[in-house]
Computed example of a mutant assay.
Amino acid sequence: MNQHITVVGGGLGGLVAAITAAEAGARVTLLEAHTHLGGRARSTSAPYVANEGPHVFYSDGPHWNWLASRGLVPANTLSLTAARGVRFRHSGRLHRLPPAGVLRAAARRALRAPSDHSFTEWGTRTLGARTTRQVAQMMGVVTFDADPGRLAADFVWSRFQRVTRPGPPAVRYVRGGWQTMVDNLAARVRALGVEVHTGTRAHELPESPVIVATSLAAARKLLGDDSLATEGGRTVMLDLGLRGRSGDAFLSFDHDEAGFLERYTCVDPTLAPAGESLVQAQLPLRDGESKTRGLERMRPFLDAALPSWEDRETWRRASVAEGRSGALDLPGATWRDRPAVNRGDGVYLVGDQVAAPGLLSEVTLASARQAATLAVKGQVTRETMAP
């Protein structure tokens, strides 16, 4: 076959799409507007190697094996020491266990939630009002929304069940930060003969078949399609370098404010200078709330999980992520109602806000593999039918 497929965007989705298409035998050209590949999967340079927000994989998903089988993700698993460092803030204080109602809810593995009611509406009837709010706030970690209870009940409940699944933790951390994985993906892309052009922005849609693996906003502009829009989270993110202190939490869930905090050096000490910790915290912003106000509201959470953190601070980075943290399904909608991967006429869409199943980055991986497979099959069909 002498197929040619163009991939627009060199982030996680674009790289995976390029690999999938090239492994199927297609000639692939990848266009990336920035000078470096990776997009939101890139990490900062040493000595503080921070991802853009909380980044993990779940080994119980189908895409982990796809990455691992190609040697693309050097991963750390949770140690017993790290697992013991999980904390839960509720009623203004830090605890070793979540609220009792949350524990009872986590045990209800057979319970299924509808998609046509909000989580608050369904949960209040099923779990009780207090437990419903506590479960919803805990899911700020995967929704990046200040009021997860307003979202579709099935959307919130399925994610809660995924995060609280029994058995050994399925969470996997990429050693050296996600930049290590980006470098591995880029090396695989080039080894497959993909023609990579960085610093090259696509101002017009290339000839099909083309895979658009950009943000939804950029895809909307490139395709001239105003329908490419969906609900997304908005959160303030804070990265901190801290001098080490015995007793700092590893993971902290904030049942009071829907925040989340993670000390990455607990599983990968190489991410910060010796004797220091790299901490990432995020707090979903309310409507109209500024970054400054969000950081102020985050302070009690930081004080509880990381005592004297301001006196120990050695490095800081704060930012607001909007439309960069996956789609949110409102009542009456499911992931199938998001913008479709197949846009017709040989155009395919990739990203964490499109119509593909999964949790956060899994949506990107699912849509990337699906888009590449459709692009290859679509061109084979067109060439076979040509006179």
Rank of each mutant, 00 (worst) to 15 (best):
A218D: 12
T314W: 01
F57C: 13
L365N: 07
A274S: 12
S45M: 14
E296P: 06
D145C: 15
R40K: 15
S79V: 01
H255R: 09
T230D: 07
G149L: 03
T265S: 12
E32A: 05
L365S: 05
D248F: 12
A327V: 01
R297K: 11
G92Q: 03
V194A: 08
R297S: 10
L80H: 12
L330T: 08
L12Y: 12
S215G: 00
A386F: 07
A75R: 05
D248C: 09
R188L: 03
A26Q: 03
A366M: 05
G326V: 08
G149C: 10
S367H: 07
L349C: 04
T35S: 15
K291Q: 04
G101R: 07
T270R: 05
G53P: 06
T214Q: 05
T44K: 13
E262L: 12
V182N: 10
T132L: 09
Q280K: 07
G259C: 02
E52W: 13
W64P: 08
D303Y: 01
A333H: 10
S115G: 13
D248V: 09
S227C: 07
A17S: 15
H197M: 12
R382Y: 13
S115K: 09
A202W: 04
G294C: 02
A368H: 03
S319A: 14
A355C: 10
V267G: 04
A186I: 00
R382W: 14
Y58N: 15
F88T: 13
G294M: 08
R70Q: 14
L330S: 11
R112I: 10
W64V: 09
A272F: 03
V16I: 15
V16C: 14
G61P: 13
V350Q: 02
V279Y: 01
Y348T: 04
R234W: 08
T77W: 07
R317N: 14
K221A: 06
D303C: 03
Q280Y: 04
M138Y: 06
S79Q: 03
V347H: 03
L238E: 14
V380G: 11
G259I: 03
T44H: 09
